[in-house]
Design a protein around this nucleic acid. Structure first.
Lengths: 233, 233
DNA sequence: CTAGACCATATTTTCGAAAATCATACCGTT
DNA sequence: AACGGTATGATTTTCGAAAATATGGTCTAG
């Protein structure tokens, strides 16, 4: 199978553009490309090995997701961060996530329960391995994302799930921003466990309350430990 | 000033790509490009007078908005319509619009009241002119959009406003879909008037109830008069 | 010394050709 | 006739050159 060696690697999508979109998204969320950083084509071209127009397509898609800021005729830059934006993302997440948890608990079937339980199980396994810096572990990030995704997956609305996914990405970027300054992760494992139990036992009110607290306390932590980065803009 | 004649017209944005994105969006919403229609580059190239890559950028942006469906390696098409999608868009709109109305009523200042009153006034003026087929009048469409925009404009969250705008566009496409089959528009003028009064008098509960009814009855009308188009897919 | 005009350079944006991929019709075999 | 493989044409996707635009510095007039 020589083809995989010949053509440019496409780890994610079928097209190079989709692949670059995916890689760029990851780097922005992880703050490998810091907020506000100008995204010049020369640099991106060398870094991702794609042409102007292909990069442009990827940047345009990310601009629609709110991770990139397109300044017409003056190029692109990583979307800046701010206290205001953090508050907006947090509020929007609470509004939508709460609704989706409610719907999922109301509609979830056996497969949903299994998905919730098994994704949490994997998350806990990974946490045992290195409980110090979970956000630095790519596997933990994926597992964490999949657990929260599983919780709402039975809500029945692809439209709201897509919106939720965008907000989750934007929030995760803020978590990365503060990760380097946070002295120690708080007890997320316990929170996740409690959310799972409330969901499985179909206690919607409790699950909703736990999720809201979970989201808001994460956001508060970001504001606390990365506040100096938010005002600098 | 010869420049406007020389270079390609850019009615909307500074770049051709942004301009084409805008024009394509309008045509898709108005169903001038019908749902499910394949968007072939040859055709678009002739129609919009732009190159492959510029069109590609516009289509990618619209795909992120949910108005275009990108099928990797097999091109783009106008996003298909379905009963399920209509229900999802309607539900999501109610969830978000209700919240934003509440926040706007809680935070709106004098300028907000003026914006609500004046946009409604213009809308009514235009309706008097041709009360039969409002959706066919581009000015009515703009005025209608601006009135609903004004209602929520004081909510304080650019993030939620952007999400709301996307959902509004997707819903407007469904309204256009049914416009040709609907015998007569119902009394929207009265509904708008009542919503305005509830908002200005800061009666949030009433405004929320009226908005929800407004959105849902519009959606019901679409399902009633364009139902045959929704099942065909 | 400041403000504005002008040029040179850096950067973005657009284009159409070329490569890659997909869809279809054709052909031979079973 | 049904099936599988292959050639052919249609379509999308990608590329780097060329055009358009912004940026920054220099000069001049006030």
């Amino acid at each position: 199978m020589p083809e995989s060696a010949i053509r440019p690697r496409k780890e994610f999508g079928k097209t190079i553009a989709a692949d670059i979109t995916h890689r760029l998204r990851e780097e922005i969320i992880a703050c490998a490309l810091p907020p506000g950083e100008p995204l010049r084509f020369d640099v991106l071209r060398e870094r991702f090995g794609a042409s102007f127009t292909t990069l442009r397509e990827a940047l345009t898609a990310l601009a629609a997701e709110g991770l990139v800021d397109a300044q017409e005729q003056r190029g692109f830059r990583v979307a800046p961060v701010s206290r205001q934006d953090l508050v907006e993302v947090t509020d929007a997440r609470v509004l939508i996530e709460v609704e989706l948890i409610r719907r999922s608990i109301g509609r979830g079937d056996d497969d949903w329960e299994i998905a919730v339980i098994s994704t949490l199980h994997r998350l806990k396994r990974i946490e045992q391995r290195d409980p110090e810096h979970p956000l630095r572990d790519p596997e933990w990030k994926i597992a964490h994302r999949q657990f929260h995704q599983a919780l709402v997956s039975a809500c029945g609305s692809a439209t709201l799930l897509a919106i939720r996914a965008e907000l989750f990405d934007r929030a995760e970027r803020y978590r990365h921003l503060s990760a380097n300054f946070r002295p120690r992760p708080r007890d997320k494992a316990g929170e996740h466990q409690a959310i799972m139990q409330a969901a499985i036992s179909r206690n919607a009110d409790l699950a909703v309350q736990l999720i809201e607290t979970h989201i808001r306390s994460t956001s508060d932590n970001v504001a606390k430990y990365a506040g100096h980065l938010l005002d600098a803009e």
